[in-house]
Design a protein around this nucleic acid. Structure first.
Length: 315
DNA sequence: GATACGTGGTC
DNA sequence: TGACCAAGTAT
């Protein structure tokens, strides 16, 4: 007998067969390295930091080396910020690396080197928001909590609400949607798996572009598919360009700092973003403000906490 | 709620 | 080619 979840979406009753999703998950779940049995909560937390706004394929080559080098919070905290930023490489959003480093220090100092298992406590740690806190609680500690990322929001929008795309994010609403489903599962273990399966489904089947509805375990229940997969409304989103932005300028400057063991001169930074001096200075200032770079007494620049080198040569 | 924050792949 | 997208967080 299957577990039918009856819920309300868009004012109408919706029924979802939980066993369809759980059965699919048992077979289709990707064997990503951070899902192996011997991976610790800290190492799972590291993967979640890396996966924030970043595709799995880009994390795959970085994570194993990282956790082998720094397996625990205390080991991570003991590393210099410069080494952490270098190991982060070009994963993107380097402030994540800084926050991960800070997070490691707090866990080592205040939590005896053990990652907390309480969502509320996790949310107070640097770099951990409502998603990551629940991902750790759910994936590392098997708690039946809603783990709502962009994938889950899309799956719920389609299967439950019959909409092509998720609406604007609302932590309260999004959690309530998933909580309503989890509450209907008969035990915590299956609720936790259901939560994880929802996310996996969004990641590999119910994708933003070209969803594989023909292979979807929910194809019999999905309100969006049953309605004929109507297109979503045109979303007016601020153009997300990158070329020529301050973000790109910051990236170029940081790239230079990462690649040089020795502090670099302002002239070397000028070369990294030559066209617009005003923008370059703005980018540099923001990196300094963010603690992602520092200015030495002699006027040169380096990653924070880099190994001081007396050499006067710039490289 | 809107905005800033990297980087690279895809269609 | 350029717009969109990717396991979000902090302000």
């Amino acid at each position: 007998m299957s577990i039918i979840l009856h819920c309300i979406g868009g004012g109408r009753a919706v029924s979802i067969d939980a066993d369809d999703l759980l059965g699919w998950f048992a077979v289709a779940e990707r064997d990503l390295p951070w899902r192996a049995g011997d991976v610790t909560p800290w190492q799972i937390l590291v993967s979640e930091f890396m996966l924030q706004q970043t595709p799995v394929a880009r994390v795959l080559p970085i994570w194993p080396d990282w956790v082998a080098r720094w397996p625990t919070p205390s080991a991570t905290a003991a590393a210099s910020q410069a080494d952490v930023l270098r190991a982060w490489g070009k994963l993107g959003y380097p402030r994540r690396a800084k926050r991960l480093h800070e997070c490691a220090a707090v866990i080592a100092r205040d939590f005896a080197d053990e990652v907390p298992d309480d969502v509320e406590v996790l949310e107070q740690l640097p770099g951990i928001g409502s998603y990551t806190a629940r991902a750790v609680a759910g994936f590392a500690y098997r708690q039946p909590v809603p783990v709502v990322d962009t994938n889950v929001r899309r799956v719920v929008a389609r299967a439950v609400h019959g909409q092509a795309d998720a609406g604007s994010p609302s932590v309260k609403r999004d959690h309530a949607d998933v909580e309503a489903l989890l509450a209907l599962l008969p035990d915590a273990e299956r609720a936790a798996r259901f939560s994880a399966a929802l996310m996996e489904l969004g990641a590999i089947v119910c994708t933003a572009r070209a969803p594989q509805c023909g292979h979807c375990p929910l194809r019999g229940d999905c309100r969006w598919l049953l309605a004929g997969s109507p297109p979503g409304a045109d979303r007016k989103r601020p153009a997300q360009r990158y070329a020529g932005t301050d973000r790109q300028a910051r990236g170029r400057l940081l790239d230079v700092l990462r690649d040089n063991t020795v502090a670099v001169t302002r002239a070397e930074l000028d070369l990294a973003w030559p066209a617009d001096a005003v923008q370059r200075e703005r980018a540099l200032s923001s990196l300094l403000d963010d603690g992602l770079a520092e200015r030495l007494p002699d006027g040169r620049f380096a990653l924070p906490g880099h190994d001081r080198n007396d050499s006067t040569a710039s490289r």
